[in-house]
Amino acid sequence: MNMRVLYFAWLRERVGLAEETVSPPPEVRTVADLITWLRSRGEVYEAALADPSIVRVAVNQDYARPDHPVQAGDEIAIFPPVTGG
C-alpha cells in the first residue's frame, strides 16, 4: 500500500527529504502506527520523530490525531507546530 509522505520545516531538514512514497506493511492502520513504523526505518527518522509533542500530522491536508486511519493513496504530511501570521 503506497502513501505519499511530505515533510516540512525542520522535519524536512532532519529527514533530508521533502517528500517520499512509502509502502508500510498492512498492520499500519493509523497515524500513530505510521509514525512508529517510520521511526523504525533508521536513525534519522528515529531522531526526527522522537518527540510526538512537537510533531503534527495532516492526512489529505486536514489535521489528524494519532488514531486517525491511514490508507493507500493518502497524502500524509508531517511537520512541526505552525508559526505563521
Partner: peptide, 29 residues
C-alpha cells in the same frame, strides 16, 4: 488572526548573522 497563527501551515525560519533558526510555536498563541 488568532486561528490562522495556530492552524495555517506556515513555518518561519529566521536568520541572524550566520545562524538560522526555525521559530518555535508559542504557548501564548
Amino acid at each position: 488572526v488568532d486561528w490562522l497563527k495556530t492552524k495555517a501551515p506556515f513555518w518561519k525560519l529566521e536568520e541572524q548573522g550566520g545562524e538560522r533558526r526555525w521559530v518555535e510555536a508559542k504557548a501564548s498563541d
